[in-house]
Computed example of a mutant assay.
Amino acid sequence: MKRNNSDIVIFERIKSGNSDALTALFNKYYQQICRFTFLFIPENKIVEELTANVFINLWETRKKITIHSSVKAYLYQAAKNQAISFLRKNKNMLTPLDDFLDLPDRRDQTPEAIYIEGELNLEFTKAYKKLPNRAQLAFKLHRLDGLKYSEVAEIMNISIGAVEKNITSALKILHSELHSYTKAN
C-alpha cells in the first residue's frame, strides 16, 4: 500500500503542475509500460513512442484526469488504449508472445547454474506461449508486473472473477507443462 500511496502523492504533484513529479513517475514506470505495450506491438521504436505518449498525455490532461483504482493501473490502461489505437491505424502489425522476465545479475553464478536457468527460462517461455491470450495477459499483469486483480480487471475490461479464472487457467497449464522441472530428482 505504501507504494500506491506514494504514486497518489506523485500524481497530485503532477496535477498541480510539478514536472519533476512527472519525471519521477516516468522513471518509475517507463520500462514496465514498454514491456506491457510490447505485448501488443513487437516494434521497440513504436513501443517507446507510444509509452512516451502515455506520459505526455498524462501531463497535457493532468487537470482532467481522475484515478479510479491506482496510478499504475491508469498508466497500463492508457498504454493499452495507445496500442489499440495504433493497431487500428496499422492493421498489419502482429502481437508478439515474448518472455518478459527480467534476468538476475549473473556474476556470482556458476556456469552450470546459468545453463540450468537458461533452460528453465526457455521451457517457461514455451509453456507461456501455449497459454490462451487472455490468460497470458492476466498472468503477466498480476504475477510479473504485480498488479492487483481489480487493476488487471480494469485494464482487461473483464470482471475480477474472470481475472481469477484466467490466472488459474494459466497456472494449471504452466504447472502441467513444467511439471518435470518441478519434481525433486
Rank of each mutant, 00 (worst) to 15 (best):
E49C: 07
V47Y: 01
K183D: 11
I116E: 00
E123M: 09
E119I: 07
N121M: 05
V152C: 10
K130A: 08
E60P: 05
A138H: 05
K148D: 14
I65N: 01
A78S: 13
H179L: 10
I84S: 05
Q32M: 12
A52G: 09
L101A: 12
F11I: 01
A83I: 04
Q109M: 07
C34F: 08
E112Y: 01
K28T: 08
A52F: 06
N166F: 12
K45R: 10
E60H: 14
R107E: 15
Y29H: 06
A73N: 00
F38R: 13
V71T: 05
D98T: 14
N185P: 13
D7V: 00
L141H: 04
D145V: 01
R3N: 11
H175T: 15
A24W: 08
R88A: 04
N18T: 02
S19D: 14
D145P: 02
Y76M: 14
K15Y: 13
M156C: 03
I41A: 01
T168W: 09
E151N: 03
A24C: 07
F11V: 02
L174S: 09
S159E: 10
L39I: 10
T110E: 00
L97H: 15
T61Y: 07
N185Y: 09
V9P: 04
V163C: 05
K64P: 03
A135M: 02
Y30C: 00
L137N: 05
I56Q: 02
L137Q: 12
S69Q: 10
N57E: 13
S159R: 11
H175C: 14
T95P: 04
G17T: 13
F26V: 07
Y115M: 09
Q77H: 07
E151P: 04
D105R: 12
L39Y: 12
N44A: 09
Y115A: 02
K63L: 06
M1F: 12
K130Y: 04
S16C: 05
I67V: 03
A79P: 02
H68E: 14
N81A: 10
R107I: 10
R106I: 08
I14W: 09
S150V: 04
L94T: 15
F124I: 09
K89G: 08
L97K: 15
P96C: 06
